[in-house]
Design a protein around this nucleic acid. Structure first.
Length: 260
DNA sequence: AAAACCTCCAACCGCCAAGCG
DNA sequence: TCGCTTGGCGGTTGGAGGTTT
């Protein structure tokens, strides 16, 4: 039976009180994250599991960064959104201290209205819209078998991380766990600018070499546009981290489909 | 001063996929 | 193989607080 927060009249909804926050926090500190179905019982909360999980991941979790987004963060969001579309959890995974909800809210309240306005202005002036053909890669997660050995080229942190490839076998994993996980390169003390450079330099160099305005994913030195799948494929064809169906689409269609 | 309007963000909802028996 | 449970995601909404009229 599908669980639904509405099914019980006893369950509390709406804003969380300080007391509820405290109970939830104590519960997670004691038992750790996960087993969300047990959390309401353990914490003594009249909330559904989803509500507890959401409150923790979006608000109570340690190291959550609050307040305005700075320029670097906005820049990173724009770039990542261009690559990933509305994959908020993936985007947030690359922005230390920010949650998927934060990023989504920021996009919906700041970026989307701005773009909408620009489009309207363009229509008023009667400028023909610029249609730019782009190639979009749609990363699709695949199952990774427990026995799959990624070495020597790849190493993983744990199951839900996106791992970058590196020629020299250096552990270059970038965590993109849904929710709040800092990138190691940032938490190691580099500032966000260095992190951004690291993240996009290779990719943009690669993009510069492409005749059309293509947008692609790059995994370290291995990636070539359109060949992501081959790099990761193993014998049974089941264990690639992502495959990359490629399709040519109109840039404005992407923006529209992302509800800009 | 107060009503109307706007902005922003926390929280909810519905759906999907993985895991498990 | 199938059905159920659970975790997680993206889209949407409601309301508190701020701003304008």
């Amino acid at each position: 039976m599908r669980e639904n927060c509405n099914t019980s009249l006893v369950l509390r909804k709406g804003a969380w009180t300080a007391e509820e926050d405290m109970l939830l926090k104590k519960c997670i500190e004691k038992f750790g994250e996960g087993k969300w179905h047990l959390v309401p019982l353990r914490a003594g909360l009249n909330r559904c599991r989803k509500s507890c999980r959401l409150r923790w991941t979006n608000y109570l979790r340690p190291n959550i960064k609050r307040g305005d987004f700075d320029e670097d963060e906005v820049d990173l969001i724009l770039r990542l959104h261009k690559l990933l579309g509305n994959r908020w959890s993936l985007i947030a995974g690359r922005i230390p201290g920010r949650t998927a909800n934060d990023v989504k809210n920021y996009w919906n309240t700041h970026v989307r209205p701005r773009h909408k306005q620009q489009k309207e202005d363009q229509l008023e002036v009667g400028e023909p819209s610029e249609h730019t053909m782009v190639t979009v890669f749609k990363p699709q997660p695949r199952a990774i078998s427990k026995t799959f050995n990624l070495s020597p080229h790849i190493t993983t942190h744990y199951t839900s991380n996106l791992t970058t490839l590196s020629n020299d076998g250096i552990d270059n994993a970038l965590k993109i766990t849904p929710g709040l996980v800092s990138s190691p390169s940032v938490s190691n003390g580099k500032n966000i600018n260095a992190y951004l450079d690291e993240l996009f330099d290779d990719q943009e160099k690669e993009l510069d070499e492409i005749e059309l305005d293509e947008i692609g994913w790059s995994f370290g030195g291995f990636s070539e546009v359109g060949e992501g799948l081959d790099v990761m494929e193993q014998e049974d064809g089941q264990n690639s981290l992502f495959d990359f169906p490629i399709e040519e689409v109109d840039m404005w269609d992407i923006l529209d489909s992302n509800q800009l």
